[in-house]
Nucleic acid binder design. Structure first.
Length: 306
DNA sequence: CGATTTTGACCAGCGC
DNA sequence: GCGCTGGTCAAAATCG
């Protein structure tokens, strides 16, 4: 039984490499150890447990491989994004936005932006090509549109992106039964950045987030800077793994707001932070944790003589 | 009690 | 001019 205990603990450690939270999930083995009484059934149970542990180790390895693949793909996408940013960054995008005209309600911006976005979606053009109309038209505010995968049961329109937002309006639009929420950056009074959040009409687990403008301050990174929510759960800011179509990111005019700065960290720390971020995202998903807990407990309980 | 959210009202642009 | 629509305002409600 000692060896089994050691193997179980090592399994727990192995899993914790990919997702550290598992080390906080106590494995309920008391039932198994108490239930095994007779010699024959004991040895059978030991054999079964070892076989099962081997299977779990293999599964653990597969998960590690998947994680590694995910990291490689993420790195490739990251470098791709950096290339795009470096190309578009030289266009003078850092220039301060022109002061707002006296009249706030101008349809010029929204109309032009909507046209650009819909054009991009219709033609499935690359983000590079998407940027051209913006540059040509000298639109003062930068538009970033991202799609965020959330829990389908989560009906909130809160997207955790590291910034602090104040909601100032909500509207049901004509082409989408889901309401659209309007937010303003409340971290700095001078910051004019706005964002619109609306669930996709086709797939309500996907939230469309449209950012307008550029932050005039640094991104807050602490957990306390996440939006304050009354009754709803905060959605995880995870790029949609299975977006509606290829246009999951229409405009990449600036870095997405991750909880850490990818460009500043050395590779080892970057990988550590990436794993932390992924584990954090997964653990914040109640569906994932519930399913995993259920799977683990099911495996453990399946050894029970009952 | 201050900050934030909710929500109905209001405004401006556009098409007819 | 009228109605529709998206975006914003602001008073009331709610929360910590």
């Amino acid at each position: 039984m000692e060896s089994i205990t050691m193997e179980q603990s090592s399994l727990s450690l192995d899993l914790s490499v990919g997702s550290h939270w598992l080390s906080h999930q106590p494995m309920k083995t008391e039932r198994n150890s108490n239930a095994i009484t007779s010699g024959d059934s004991k040895s059978k149970e030991v054999v079964n447990l070892r076989a099962e542990l081997n299977r779990m180790n293999e599964e653990n390895e597969r998960l590690n491989e998947m994680l590694q693949n995910m990291y490689e793909k993420y790195s490739a996408l990251q470098s791709q994004m950096m290339d795009i940013m470096s190309e578009s960054g030289s266009e003078g995008g850092s220039a301060a936005p022109a002061p707002e005209p006296e009249k706030k309600r101008k349809r010029y911006n929204s109309k032009t932006q909507n046209e650009i976005v819909s054009n991009a979606m219709d033609q499935s053009i690359s983000s590079d090509e998407c940027l051209k109309p913006i540059k040509d038209d000298q639109i003062k505010s930068k538009i970033t549109k991202v799609y965020v995968q959330t829990n389908p049961s989560d009906t909130s329109l809160i997207v955790k992106d590291g910034y602090q937002w104040r909601k100032y309006g909500q509207k049901v639009t004509r082409d989408n039964p889901c309401p659209r929420a309007y937010f303003r950056c409340s971290f700095a009074p001078t910051c004019q950045v706005k964002k619109k959040v609306q669930r996709s009409a086709e797939n309500q687990s996907i939230v469309e987030v449209t950012y307008e403008g550029e932050h005039t301050h640094n991104a807050p990174t602490s957990q306390s800077d996440t939006p304050k929510v009354k009754n709803n759960v905060v959605a995880n800011f995870v790029p949609a793994s299975k977006p509606v179509t290829d246009e999951h990111i229409i405009h990449i005019k600036k870095k997405p707001h991750l909880d850490f700065d990818l460009s500043a960290a050395p590779p080892a720390e970057l990988q550590y932070q990436l794993v932390e971020q992924m584990a954090s995202s997964l653990t914040k998903d109640p569906g994932f944790t519930a399913a995993l807990a259920s799977a683990i407990s099911g495996k453990i309980l399946s050894f029970s003589p009952n």
